[in-house]
Structure formats: structure tokens, C-alpha cells
Amino acid sequence: MTEPQNSAAPAAFRGIWPALLTPLDADLSIDHAKFAAHCKSLIARGCPGVTPFGTTGEGPSFSMAERKEAIDQLIHNGVPASQIMVSTSCAALPETLELTRHAVNAGVHGCLMLPPFFLKGVSDQGIIDSYRYVIDGMGSDLPKLKLYLYHIPQVTGVPLSHHVIATLKKLYPQTILGIKDSACTTAHSVGLAEAFMKDLTLNMTVYVGFEPDLPELGRRGSTGAISGLANFMPRVVNRLVTEPDAPATPAERERIIQLLGLLEGYSLMPALKGIMAMLTGDEAWLRVRAPLVALTPEQFKAVKTTISAFGIDSKSD
């Protein structure tokens, strides 16, 4: 294993990097042209970058070959590599390492990484060792890696404790720049902010995936987010975290809470794809990979009715 790094870490990302929905062709392969167009549309609406293959993007449902090809195609189709953050999370560590090395050598901004998520009840030391396997495995490419730890225990069943985060940050201060907390618990996110953002010498940023918590974290120094709702509401999501005390923020936060409430009766990723299908007029967005199940025609009709009444304005949202 490598020796602990000693010098200060570079700056973490700022702004909203949407957790991209992944468009699919009729055979459920990735629609590369549509994927790139979606990325470029979001960047044109003010997003500094985009994040493919996270939870919202059904990342673990795609093979290593598919994910590498998708990143290559995004870059080939005009999405700047420096404006891409790749979720390289896999259950198998060698695959996580391979995807991470590929992303770094493609020139992306950084990588978002879950702990291995197949085995449950693993120890903190096992989680630390898992991240060390990937980070140390980067070899001479390690100085190019910017890594964001990804905590979403309700999905993975493998939480990241403060001890794990602090140990990895101490070992790799130049590499680990932040934490994405998608536990959707305000107290947990605030606890991470208190532990890792108060001490400015740590150079560590906590980002939340649960949009209603963005103002609270913005007040504590968070500078952005990786957000699923930002696929179609990037501006309002950005304002929640960058303007937490603006006069309009409470109303915009309540609007986000209302939207999430409207989607509670659906599986979230198919519902988000339903909103994309409605807003673009392209029902191909409805397609998902198993084990997810696409909205039925009746469900899609209901989503269209509900979201039309709610109202999403592409100019302000």
C-alpha cells in the first residue's frame, strides 16, 4: 500500500452536477447521442458538470464495457471530460479499480465511489481496506484522482462511519475531496458537516443528495450537489444550496418537497424518467433496466397529469 499523502488537497467541485438519468434504446442499450445531448443541455443551463452512473443513473445495472464506452462516447460527442464526474461503483473491487482508472485517464473531473455493496455487516476496517485497494491500485495515476465518497446506506446496506471517512481522509488528503451523503437524514448530514467542514484545514466538502436539505448544508459551507431532480430543475436546485437565505428559498424548498411528495407512490427512478419523457415529449425516456420496472401507460398518464398541474418551467427551474 502507498504511504499517506502529506500535502493539501485540491479544490472540490462547486455547483450542481446532475445525477444523470440514463437514456436507453429499444434494446435497452445506452442511447449515446441522447445521453450527450442531455449533458450538453444541462451544462448550457448553468451546470458546471454532470455525473453519470450513480444511483439515479442505474449505474450498477450496466457492465464495465458499457460504462467505459458511454464515457468515451460522451467525450467524443462534445461533453468536456473535465465536466464529467463518473460514479465508478461496483460490487467487485477490481471492476471499481478498472472503471476508476479508465475515468481518470479519460481526463474526468473526479470519481464518485460507494463501498462494495454485496456483503452486509462488514467492519469499518473492511470498508477502509476496500477503498485502499482501489486508491492504492491507481499506482502512477493516483495524483490525477479526485475522489468523492458516497454514502447511501438505505440502498447499499453498507454505511460510511465517521471513523472510515476520517481514516481515509488522513491517509489520502490530496485524493479524497468530499462526501456525498444521500442518507436523506438531516441530522446525519449536519453531523458530517460538523465533523468534516468546520475544520477548514481538512479541505473536505459535504454534499447532500436530498434536495430539501440543501439550504441547511449551504449555510454550513456546502458548495453544490449531485442531484437527481437537477435533470430537469437544475437552477432551483442550485439556488437552494448557493442562496440558502435568499427571500425566495423557503418557498422553493417547499416546492421541492411538494414534488417529492407527488412522486412517493412510484419507484423514484422510473418516475423521474417519466418526468423527462413528459418534458421532452420523448417516451423513450421511460425505459429502464431490470430490476427496475418502467411506468405503465396508466402510471405515465397519471404522472403527466400530476406534473403538468405542478408545473416545471425550463427557464427558471
Rank of each mutant, 00 (worst) to 15 (best):
E283L: 03
S29Q: 12
S87N: 15
L119V: 13
K170M: 07
P247N: 12
S61E: 10
D25R: 15
E194L: 04
D141K: 01
P153C: 08
I165A: 02
V164L: 10
G281C: 04
G126H: 07
D72R: 14
A9L: 09
S29D: 12
P18D: 08
I16Q: 04
C184N: 14
E98R: 15
E69Y: 05
Q174C: 06
A230L: 05
T280Q: 05
S314K: 12
A19C: 10
L149D: 06
E95Y: 10
G15F: 10
K180G: 06
L214P: 02
N231M: 08
K146I: 03
H38D: 13
A9C: 02
T156C: 08
V237R: 00
G110S: 01
E3C: 02
Q5R: 10
I84Q: 01
L286F: 06
G57P: 12
P244Y: 00
C39V: 02
G281M: 04
H102K: 14
K144F: 05
G228V: 06
V164E: 01
F232R: 09
V50R: 08
I307A: 09
F300V: 14
S189Y: 00
S29F: 00
P270F: 00
P212N: 10
L259Q: 13
I256H: 15
G59Q: 12
A271C: 08
P60M: 13
S227C: 12
V108T: 02
I307W: 11
G78H: 12
P297H: 04
Y133A: 05
S130F: 03
I152W: 01
D213Y: 13
P143C: 06
L202F: 11
S308H: 14
L114F: 14
H102F: 01
L260W: 03
T306E: 15
F13R: 04
L149Q: 11
D313F: 12
G191A: 12
P116Q: 08
T306V: 15
I312C: 09
G311A: 15
E69R: 14
P10N: 04
G139H: 05
L142A: 07
F118W: 11
G228C: 08
I128A: 08
C111R: 11
G78Y: 07
V241A: 03
K301E: 09
I165F: 14
F35T: 09
L112C: 02
T96Y: 03
G107A: 03
P234L: 08
K301W: 00
P94M: 13
H163S: 07
A65R: 10
I307F: 10
S41G: 10
P18S: 09
D31C: 13
D136S: 02
Q258P: 05
I71W: 01
M85F: 02
M64G: 10
G78Q: 10
H162I: 03
A246K: 00
R220Q: 01
L145G: 03
K273N: 15
